[in-house]
């Protein structure tokens, strides 16, 4: 009976300790100015639209981690561009890191190179040692979207998500 109570007490103490430690840890991704909307405007078939309003980029993605682990910044296609039953294949959209303002990690394909959204999840950035101890990583990003030649006219919308995660 005593042994059982001791195990419960130790478990509870360790969980509190873990919770308290986690409370102090920082692990978050944010978008500057809460600018979470990508409006590519009105585009003709076969043409490419680019969103880069802030002098070369659209918004900055900021990531902070104090966990000490390698992390990855990915972009996740929750719902592709859709208009009724018509879709625009998502590999027509690309994320471009215009500038790596801070951070020691690796931008996929390097800066100013298209990172096409070829699958459900696309890795944008892999952190390095110095990125895992609280230094803010800032990436200036713009987006391109090419409308295929044979795309039905209409208003399309898509949902995407930046995911900062410690698992590849």
């Amino acid at each position: 009976m005593m042994r059982r109570k001791a195990v419960i007490a130790i478990s509870v103490f360790l969980m509190f300790l873990a919770a308290a430690t986690e409370g102090r840890a920082e692990f978050n991704v944010s978008i500057t100015d809460n600018n979470n909307y990508l409006d590519f405007g009105a585009v003709k078939c076969g043409e490419e639209a680019r969103i880069a309003l802030k002098g070369g980029y659209h918004h900055a993605i900021q990531c902070v981690s104090t966990n000490g682990n390698t992390w990855y910044l990915k972009i996740d296609v929750i719902r592709p561009f859709t208009c009724g039953d018509k879709t625009i294949p998502m590999d027509n959209m690309a994320v471009v890191v215009e500038q790596q303002v801070s951070g020691q990690g690796i931008v996929m394909y390097g800066t100013n190179r298209d990172i096409p959204l070829t699958g459900r999840e696309t890795t944008i950035y892999t952190s390095a040692l110095g990125d895992n101890t609280g230094q803010q990583v800032v990436l200036n990003i713009y987006y391109t979207l090419k409308i295929p030649e044979n795309q039905v006219a209409g208003s399309y919308t898509a949902n995407l998500q930046y995911v900062m995660i410690e698992r590849l």
């Binding site: 991704v29 585009v43 039905v152 006219a153």
Partner: peptide
């Protein structure tokens, strides 16, 4: 730790009008 890996997300909404 990988099984309990930390994660944070930000949503993006996109639109385009195909002429």
């Amino acid at each position: 730790p990988a099984a309990f890996a930390d994660q944070d997300t930000e949503n993006l909404y996109a639109s385009v009008t195909v002429l």
